[in-house]
């Protein structure tokens, strides 16, 4: 198996379908399960398509409303961001407190549209993936396409289940914000679904049409 291939193709070789098989499936609009590791590069996002079920392993950063506001202030002051933004994945989330001996409490996604005001700026700086739930603005979709990024949805309200995929959680900064602090997580096979891919396809817009009976 060629070592330099992106993950999806590697998987394809591994399960015997090959590049051609994958291309046929893609043309037929078939979605697939994929395993990816961070950092998430343009090479990775290129192979992610709406509806794909993706398992992420590696490092992801946690930031929601108040943290994003602070990140913008940092940029205004022309100071460096508190974590490497290039190819980063940001999880919009504010966990419940961890019980003793556990890395984190309940940890499901929050509504992403509240970060719409801030996301394009961070995407333009190199952020590649956003994990949240719910619709995004056209500005965010444009920034996704412009930067070869991706928007994943995690299942809203499945915070107990999702917490089981988080192996480690460290405070990066803004501890004073409580549940809104910036965290660095180590995740293993963290399950998400591609909702907006790097071509701007949007699963929220297409999926409901398929099952609408009005």
């Amino acid at each position: 198996m060629p070592a330099e291939l992106p993950y999806a193709e590697k998987e394809a070789f591994a399960n015997g379908r090959g590049i051609l098989g994958i291309m046929i499936e893609r043309t037929a609009g078939i979605t697939m399960d994929q395993y990816i590791t961070t950092p998430i590069t343009a090479e990775t996002t290129k192979n992610l398509h709406v509806g794909d079920y993706v398992y992420i392993s590696g490092t992801i950063y946690v930031a929601r409303d108040a943290a994003h506001k602070r990140l913008m202030e940092v940029l205004e002051r022309e100071e460096p961001l508190p974590f490497p933004i290039q190819d980063a994945a940001i999880y919009y989330m504010g966990p419940s407190p961890a019980r003793e001996g556990r890395p984190i409490g309940s940890a499901g996604p929050t509504t992403a549209s509240r970060m719409d005001k801030y996301a394009p700026r961070l995407l333009d700086l190199g952020q590649k993936a956003m994990i949240g739930k719910g619709k995004r603005s056209q500005e965010v979709v444009d920034a996704i396409v412009r930067n070869q990024a991706v928007y994943f949805a995690a299942v809203g309200g499945a915070g107990a289940l999702l917490s089981k995929c988080i192996q480690k959680s460290d405070l990066v900064c803004y501890g004073d914000l409580g549940a809104e602090a910036i965290l660095r997580l180590e995740v293993k096979d963290f399950p998400v679904i591609v909702v907006i891919d790097c071509q701007g396809n949007n699963l929220y817009e297409t999926a409901s049409k398929e099952y609408a009976v009005l």
Binding site: S96, S106, A158
Partner: peptide, 23 residues
């Protein structure tokens, strides 16, 4: 997804992790 939500409820009760982080 609905299967995951069922599983989520099970984990919440058995391991004492809130059903959703937004309590």
């Amino acid at each position: 997804i609905l299967g995951q939500l069922q599983e989520n409820l099970k984990i919440a009760g058995e391991e004492m992790i809130p059903i959703c982080q937004d309590t």
